[in-house]
């Protein structure tokens, strides 16, 4: 019971995952960011670890997915299973970088955006939730989720 509660809010206690860095510029085409933020393809295995980690990706706070080793998954959002069949890499990149471009009042946090935020805790100021490399890793991983 106690584990459940502290895990749910474990993201409270961890330091920022990404150090301050310049935001890379990217081009939006429709509902997608077609080009890799880093110019390189991401690493799907690293991406899985990011998604599964409650203090790094935070994804499982809200989403569920094919993570049998993770008993505590959220249901505020659709399952990530099949995300790679429903979306192109560019759509997934857009979804992560700034989900409000797709759903204006979404609760999904903007993982690679620094503007239009208020009262960000000092420890996270000027930092994106994920780095450009991490975004690419997560995109690569999500593209493996075909069903």
């Amino acid at each position: 019971m106690r584990i459940a509660a502290s895990l749910a809010f474990a993201f409270v206690l961890t330091a920022a995952s990404v150090s301050a860095q310049e935001l890379r510029t990217y081009v939006v085409a429709g509902d997608a960011v077609p080009d890799s933020l880093t110019g390189q393809p991401g690493d799907a295995e690293k991406g899985r670890a990011i998604v599964a980690n409650r203090t790094v990706g935070l994804c499982l706070l809200c989403h569920s997915g094919p993570f049998p080793e993770q008993p505590l998954q959220g249901n505020l959002a659709p399952s990530l299973s099949g995300a790679g069949a429903r979306n192109t890499p560019g759509q997934l990149r857009m979804r992560l970088v700034d989900p409000s471009r797709l759903v204006p009042d979404t609760i999904m946090p903007p993982y690679y955006r620094l503007d239009r935020l208020q009262r960000v805790a000092r420890a996270y100021e000027g930092k994106t939730i994920l780095s450009a490399d991490q975004i690419e890793d997560v995109v690569a991983y999500l593209m493996t989720l075909k069903e």
Binding site: I3, A4, A5, L7, A8, F9, R54, L60, L61, C62, P71, L72, Q73, G74, N75, L76, I107
Partner: peptide, 14 residues
């Protein structure tokens, strides 16, 4: 976002 719009749902385990 959580307490009006998503109360009753699971945030991870809680």
């Amino acid at each position: 976002n959580c307490h009006d719009d998503n109360a009753g749902k699971k945030l991870a385990g809680a």
